[in-house]
Simulated scan of single mutants.
Amino acid sequence: MTPHIVVLGAGYSGMVASKLAARRTGAPVTLVNARDTFVERVRMHQLASGQELPERPIKELLEGTGVDFVADRVIHIDADRRTVVLTGQELRYDVLIYALGSRTDLSSVPGTSEYAYTVADVDNATRLRERLEKEGSVAVVGGGLTGIEVATEIAETYPGREVRLVTSSEFGAGLSDRGRRHLHRTFKRLGISRVEGVRVASVDGSGLPLDGNDRLEADIVVWTTGFEVSRLAAEAGFAVDSRGRMVVDGTLRSVSHPDVYAVGDAAAVRRNTGQELRMACATGIPAAAHAVRALTDRLAGREPRDLHFRYFNQCISLGRHDALIQFVRADDTPVEAVLTGRTAAKYKETIVRSAYLAQRHPALTALT
């Protein structure tokens, strides 16, 4: 019997998985996503700063693939009945590929959901864009790659505006000495100040109360730290980790439900060394390709191989004319080699365009 494959989530991982599954298995594939447009999530800081991004209708991306698209929201998964319950219908599956991604955690720190802005999706990035068009100082909370990209994009777009990056850790932690030096030069050039080693206790209408009764005043707070996943996997009874991500084996198959695979941010994926992969489209896309390969092998009666993955670099945009490409070892630890400036900006743009190109032509992805 030909299995019906249902893919939940049309982000970087889900789109690749659905198209490859249709092409390689010949089985009917249904892709479910709440929005009817594909979101280039790695460009949301650009949208927030006022840049125009093209619409990417999912149906256009699926033309000629045979994948059936349903624009609807998942509200429940019945693992026993192999059924996905949507707001408007139910879908039965023989194989489920779970790719619902992640979202910014706005529940752990009081006031974030009421007062902070995010760049996690189109709607929230658009809200921030509209607010930035008005006057006001900006505090970007989170010293990771997203926070750095947001702070530099805003500072470049709105020169002279007060922009601060607030982080609980050391600025540029995880980068090489050369990488950190370039970040320091860039922040100085753009006039971005840094507040390091502090913990935000809450967010209110005028800024950030900190642990220890201190506070930072800010008209606009952008929250870029902490991510969470949907509770759907846990509620369905799938094995999940402490963060709610589906626990998978080396082939990206659920350790508790052999008819389910998980890819992208919603999956706890590990290298063959046991190291957990970080959340990024650079890891999610090849993982999705590998999951489909494993599924195809099993349908053909072959034993699939485990995922073999190594890191190459970390790419950080610093506005439209600068970037930092931090080259890393296989385990993602930095080496001293970096690429900076306009050449790095072109490199980063090539990476971002390649991530979208993989949505149109997933056979070009690595591990295919």
Rank of each mutant, 00 (worst) to 15 (best):
V67S: 01
R35N: 13
A363K: 15
V6N: 13
A79W: 06
D219W: 11
V247T: 15
S49H: 04
F171D: 08
R199G: 15
Y117S: 03
E149M: 04
G144T: 08
R24I: 00
A139W: 01
G174E: 01
G319H: 06
L364A: 10
P334Y: 02
G341F: 12
T30I: 08
A288I: 05
S113V: 05
D211R: 08
F69K: 02
L86I: 05
E276N: 05
V255N: 02
G147Y: 05
V122T: 11
T157S: 15
V166R: 00
H182E: 13
E336H: 10
Q89C: 08
L357Y: 10
K134C: 06
S168T: 11
G274Y: 04
V109C: 10
G136Q: 02
I285M: 10
V255S: 03
A71S: 11
I58F: 04
G191S: 09
Q275I: 06
Y356S: 00
V328F: 06
G144D: 13
A99H: 02
D211V: 15
F312V: 15
T273R: 15
R320K: 14
H321F: 12
I285T: 12
N272R: 13
V203C: 05
R189V: 14
Q51R: 14
S254P: 00
G205D: 15
K134V: 01
A218Q: 09
G160L: 11
V16Q: 02
S206K: 13
A287Q: 10
R131Y: 01
T368W: 12
D265S: 05
S230L: 10
R320F: 06
Y261Q: 07
D80K: 12
R92N: 15
V222Q: 00
V163L: 02
V338Y: 11
E276A: 10
T343M: 14
T224G: 03
D322T: 00
N313I: 06
L364Q: 12
Q275N: 07
E156H: 06
S18F: 01
H361E: 13
V240M: 06
R82V: 09
H182C: 07
P362G: 01
N272Q: 14
L53V: 10
F238S: 08
R41Q: 10
D249P: 04
A280H: 04
E235V: 13
V7Q: 11
S49L: 04
T65G: 03
V328G: 08
E63P: 08
S13I: 08
N272I: 13
P159A: 04
V269P: 08
A344S: 04
R253E: 02
I77Q: 04
V222H: 01
L31N: 03
E235R: 14
A201V: 04
V221N: 00
R353A: 09
L31R: 00
V269C: 09
G144I: 07
T146V: 15
R41V: 07
A239V: 14
V42C: 14
D80I: 11
A266H: 00
A266K: 03
P286A: 11
S230K: 09
G237F: 07
D204E: 05
N213V: 06
N213P: 07
D332W: 05
V140S: 03
L190H: 02
T167R: 03
I316N: 08
L175F: 09
V140G: 01
